[in-house]
Structures are given as structure tokens and as C-alpha cells.
Design a protein around this nucleic acid. Structure first.
Lengths: 114, 114
DNA sequence: AAAATATGACGTATAAATACGTCAAATAAA
DNA sequence: TTTATTTGACGTATTTATACGTCATATTTT
């Protein structure tokens, strides 16, 4: 980059791009999916489920936490993680709004490819 | 990474993560949005719209093309770009399926934060 | 034909992401 | 108390992404 330019874009675009970035790794997607399937808190050793080192998984968990998509509760020596329903809902709304923005209308035409 | 591990995940997850990666930059989102707004082909000098160098914008256009989300038609010395409706539709379906996978059920509870 | 314009290929510098090892702290078990 | 577990902070190697400059090619325009 020599210099990051992401700050020069319209704020809404930046926010969406940041969300997409959080979702741009299979490990993080699998964690979210797993949390959704269990529909409950799980202990931190999700690493057994993923083909990655425990500390790497921990790193992904931290990213999801920073994005607010999951929460972690300390329980003795363990940590339990669960989805953050509020933030997940926000995410859903952001994605839906993106879909509405982008999708071509029915009347979409193009000289060459239409 | 020392060694990329993204290939070790379930294929569906990888595919979704790749899509999200393409969408994880404001420049690419703005290009898609712009193409959607005009609802037609536009010449390559989209760079005037973005706070980036022309060649950088071109790079982003290429990434979108590689992902199949847009198409480029050569027209003399110019190149016209437009959305690829089929692929956009696929993208939408992928995102919707992701939303369905992840969203917590109504009965979602958590010992601590519920 | 010569000059101007538009585009993309290529190289490269820097920033960010990814992956893991090591270590220390906190708690539970022996 | 001593030992074992669980966790996250930290450092770091390597890969990937980002951003731009330069150049060559192709097409208009003059």
C-alpha cells in the first residue's frame, strides 16, 4: 500500500468492507457456523474442530470478538464463547442492504453482453 | 502464514470466504455500486470516481473480473465494464445461505449473556 | 504519419493477514 | 503444595494484499 487509502472512501462502504474482511476466512466462518449450530456457549477449545493450531484459532476468536460478532465469558480456567445476537442482526441488515444496493434491476441491459 | 491452510477447510466455507474476500475492499464495493447505479456499461476511467491511482483501480477491476462479478468489453481503445447478472445472482444466493446458516435462532440462549 | 489517449501488463515497495511457537498467569486437580 | 490444564499475550516468519510507477500496445485524433 505504501499508504493505506481505505479511510478515503465513503464511510458506509468502509464499514461494509470491514465486515466482509472479518468474514473473509474459512476459520472464522466455521467458528460462527459452529456457534450457531450448538446454539449455546462453547469452550475455547474449538481448535479441535479446525485444522489449525490452538493459538491461531484463538487469534481468529479475538478478531470475531473485536468485530463484536461473538462474546467470551470466563468460567474458571475456561472461556465460553457465544454469538452476540444483536451484532449478528446488525450484520444481517448490513448484508441485506448491500444486496439491495448491488443487484442489477430486471431491466439491466448492456450493449454487448445484454 | 508459513503455509496457507485455507485449503483444509470444507469447500463451501472456502468458497464463501473467497467471495467475502473479494468484497472486503471499499474500492471494489464502490465499483460494484457504481455499476449498479448506472445500470449500464461504463468506460474504464472509473478511477475518476475513486481516491486511487488509475492502475490501482484497474487492479481492483481485474479482481472483480476474475471473481466473475463483472465483465469487460473492449470497444476501440476503451473498455466498458458492466455487472455480470448471473454471477451477481449466485453471489446473492451464497450470502443468503450464509445468513441462514449463521443467524441465531429465536430460542438462542446463553448462560451468562442470555 | 505523428501525437494523443486509453488500457493493461509488469515490477516493486510497503502494509496487513496468517500461522505458529513460547511464555506467563490463573485455575483446577493430585 | 505441587502438578496439570486452559487460556491469551507476545514475538516473529512468511504469505498475501494494497498502491503506485513505468512501459508497451492499440486505437483515435490531428
Amino acid at each position: 500500500m505504501v499508504q493505506s487509502k481505505t479511510g478515503l472512501f465513503e464511510k458506509g462502504l468502509t464499514k461494509k468492507a470491514e465486515l466482509f474482511k472479518v468474514l473473509a476466512h474459512p476459520a472464522r466462518l466455521q467458528i460462527l457456523q459452529f456457534l450457531s449450530q450448538t446454539q449455546n456457549c462453547i469452550t475455547g477449545d474449538i481448535s479441535d474442530e479446525l485444522p489449525l493450531c490452538r493459538t491461531t484459532v484463538n487469534q481468529h476468536l479475538t478478531e470475531l470478538k473485536n468485530a463484536g460478532l461473538i462474546q467470551g465469558h470466563i468460567e474458571g480456567v475456561r472461556t465460553k464463547y457465544c454469538l452476540e445476537p444483536e451484532r449478528i442482526k446488525e450484520m444481517k441488515e448490513l448484508l441485506v442492504s448491500f444486496l439491495e444496493d448491488i443487484q442489477p434491476d430486471d431491466g439491466y441491459v448492456c450493449d454487448k453482453c445484454g
